[in-house]
Design a protein around this nucleic acid. Structure first.
Length: 261
DNA sequence: ATGTCGTGCTGCGCACGA
């Protein structure tokens, strides 16, 4: 029985709840990792999302950040906060085991730091967070489990993952130090699901609200599903739900969905 | 060069983050 796993930066679950419910119905994934909830756990719209058939675990925060894992299967072994970043007050990481019918599947919902402006504490924090993620991911690989780190990495991996290299050249999302963190995950043995099954250039998951970026297709690919070997071996296809960006009151990100055999 | 969102309070306009 296939298992579909989605990542979606919703940019406030409450500001666009009707649109978000519509998008969730359209993608109809078994597991959805949400980012940028921008609400505390008590303000998460539980009943509306439970009505779509989901179990819900959240790691919320007022105003900023916040991640969740939704699953049509039972959710087990939930952990909140990235190991190695115990003093970090920002809610950017949670993990759980999905009790899928065939075999358990571990998922993480990630909202990596943006890191701009470069040369400030924000950029240092981005790199420090990514280093902790790499160390944790390495430890997870030793378990030899199907495991997906799903979310907003705030890293543009390749030149062709943006519309214009010149526009992003000095941005925290594009600098070599950032790309090297993504590459370090690859070198450990993680596979970018999109790269495994497609990899076509100029396919994006984010379009800024500003300057008509959506109409000009001036986007970037920063939302990724990084798969352990045991997950990558089962990966069948990937879909980027581009239509979500054209809706009323859209998030600036669209969902990416991986289907695992 | 600018552009737009969402949040919350120093609160009905602003600062901040993206």
């Amino acid at each position: 029985m296939p298992l579909s796993i989605a990542a979606w930066n919703v940019n406030s679950i409450n500001a666009r709840l009707p649109t978000a419910l519509e998008v969730l119905k359209e993608i109809d994934a078994d597991v959805v990792c949400l980012q940028e909830l921008k609400c505390e756990d008590a303000k998460f719209p539980r009943s509306e999302i439970e009505d779509l058939g989901y179990n819900i675990e959240t790691h919320g925060q007022k105003t900023y950040n916040g991640v969740a894992i939704l699953s049509k299967h039972r959710i087990e072994d939930v952990t909140r906060g990235l190991p190695g970043m115990e003093d970090d007050p920002q809610s950017r990481w949670m993990e759980a085991v999905i009790a899928a019918p065939d075999a358990p599947f571990r998922v993480a919902s990630l909202y990596a730091p943006n890191g701009n402006p470069v040369g400030t504490e924000k950029y240092d924090y981005k790199l420090r967070f990514m280093d902790a993620l790499i160390a944790h991911a390495k430890a997870r690989l030793a378990l030899e489990e199907p495991y997906v780190i799903a979310g907003d990495y705030n890293i543009i991996p390749r030149d062709v993952d943006c519309h214009s290299v010149a526009a992003w050249a000095d941005d925290a999302l594009f600098l070599p130090e950032s790309k090297n963190r993504y590459r370090a995950l690859s070198h450990l043995g993680f596979t970018d699901a999109y790269m495994q099954v497609d990899g076509a250039p100029h396919v994006y998951t984010f379009w800024d609200y500003q300057a008509g970026a959506w109409n000009k297709n001036n986007g970037i690919r920063i939302d990724h599903l990084m798969c352990s070997p045991q997950a990558a071996d089962r990966l069948d296809r990937v879909r980027i739900h581009r239509d979500a960006r054209g809706k009323e009151k859209p998030s600036d990100h669209v969902p990416i969905i991986g289907v695992f055999r």
